[in-house]
């Protein structure tokens, strides 16, 4: 599994397309609580985490399904602690999930202004 992280609008999906030759058909775009591991690239995992009570538990339970995937997750961990409980939970859940995925990944890339920084 390859994990691509980075801030909003940094070019994470473009990096995946350019580097791994994936097209729009290969990409599943997550929405609140919704995810589908049948596609090669899973994009906006933070949005799945936004609407799911236990995103880390879900990924652990479906571990076999994403072993060969390209996972893209926006880092949402660096700002001020959000005022709203929902956003606080989102930030924590997404951070914990990112740590788990990063440990599992064969490669971790952070995208900064369109440029790749290899973290693992």
């Amino acid at each position: 599994m390859i994990l691509i992280i980075g801030g909003a609008y940094q070019g994470k999906l473009d990096y995946a397309k350019d580097t791994f030759g994936i097209t729009d058909e290969d990409v599943f775009i997550c929405d609140a609580g919704k995810i589908d591991f049948s596609k090669r690239c899973i994009y906006k995992i933070e949005e799945f985490a936004y609407g799911h009570p236990d995103p880390l538990g879900y990924f652990q339970a479906h571990r076999e399904e994403w072993q060969n995937s390209i996972l893209i997750l926006r880092d949402v961990f660096c700002g001020v602690v959000p005022m709203g409980a929902e956003n606080r939970a989102w930030r924590q859940n997404t951070g914990r999930l990112a740590q788990y995925l990063s440990k599992e990944a064969a490669q971790v890339s952070r995208i900064f202004c369109g440029l790749e920084q290899r973290l693992k």
Binding site: G79, P82, R88
Partner: peptide
């Protein structure tokens, strides 16, 4: 200004996107 957990208004998101595009 891209790594926080705020859900911004549409105009603020547009501002972030425009700045990120020129950054890239």
């Amino acid at each position: 200004i891209y790594s926080d957990a705020e859900r911004y208004s549409e105009s603020t998101e547009m501002y972030r996107k425009c700045l990120a595009d020129i950054d890239r």
